[in-house]
Amino acid sequence: MARLDRLTVYPVKGLDGIELEAAAVREGGTLAHDREFALFDADGEVVNGKRTDRVHDLETDYEPSTATLSVTAPDGDRRRFDLEADREAAAAWFGDFFDADLSLERDASLGFVDRREMGPSVISTATLETVASWFDGTTVDGVRRRLRANVEIGGVDPFWEDRFVGEDAPAFEVGDVRFEGVTPCGRCVVPQRDPDTGEPTDGFRQRFVEKREATFPDWADRDAFDHYYTLMIIARVPERDRGCTLTVGEPVETGRQ
């Protein structure tokens, strides 16, 4: 049976995610705590994995109940910051690490997501397993960390999520929350890197595109995809369902258009 297997949010944009057993849908349509904070330089440009592979050198964790961010640097330096009270201290520490004048900003209503008019990203566990099989020595969790999806669906076929974008695409429901597919997610440079070391995987993009084309589902709307370097979808939660809570283990049902 299709079910919600995993919820992952990324409290500080570009840094590590945390798994949740339950997550509310914010008024902006994204998941609570997802990209709630982001580092910006003096020019207002965000610091993330697209911009620098140094984000892979940091290990981070976040406790939502206390807004506490834990950071471990490559040299073993460990810090804890209360992001309710010590955001300036955290920004200064990250500024030293990235050698830039940084501020740590907060957006609790929407988060600093790339597609601000959309909502959570969605992928199936079977998709992650299939992609992991394309690359020797790559684990499912490694692919999960490369792709950084919010909502992971179990009990379905690989590329299940592809059916929810394109002309006449249906929606799906997780418990009482409706998800409407908006667009496939074209990938950037981040999935090409080892999530632990930041080192690029040789030939990643070429092999990914070849395998993606070879395994593209017959039932998906090919016209909805601009290219084959695309995986997972970005969905929208209707306003009426915002404020509801998603819980791991809830059933997933495909709805009507």
Rank of each mutant, 00 (worst) to 15 (best):
R3S: 13
R3Y: 15
T8W: 01
V9A: 02
K13I: 09
L20W: 00
L20A: 05
E21T: 12
A22W: 06
A38C: 09
L39V: 06
F40C: 02
D41P: 06
D43I: 00
E45Q: 14
T52R: 05
T52V: 08
D53Q: 12
D53I: 11
V55S: 10
V55L: 14
V55P: 10
D57E: 15
D57N: 11
L58R: 10
E59A: 14
T60Y: 05
D61F: 11
Y62I: 06
R87D: 12
A90F: 04
A91P: 07
A92R: 14
F94H: 09
G95H: 02
D99G: 07
D99Y: 02
D99P: 03
R106K: 11
L110F: 05
V113M: 03
R115P: 01
E117M: 03
P120W: 01
I123T: 11
V131W: 01
A132D: 04
A132C: 05
V151M: 06
W160D: 11
E161K: 06
D162W: 04
D168M: 07
V182I: 12
E199G: 07
Q206E: 15
F208S: 04
V209K: 01
E213F: 00
E213Q: 10
A214L: 08
A214H: 03
D218H: 04
R222H: 07
F225M: 03
Y228G: 07
I234E: 15
E239D: 13
G249F: 01
R256W: 12
Q257A: 15
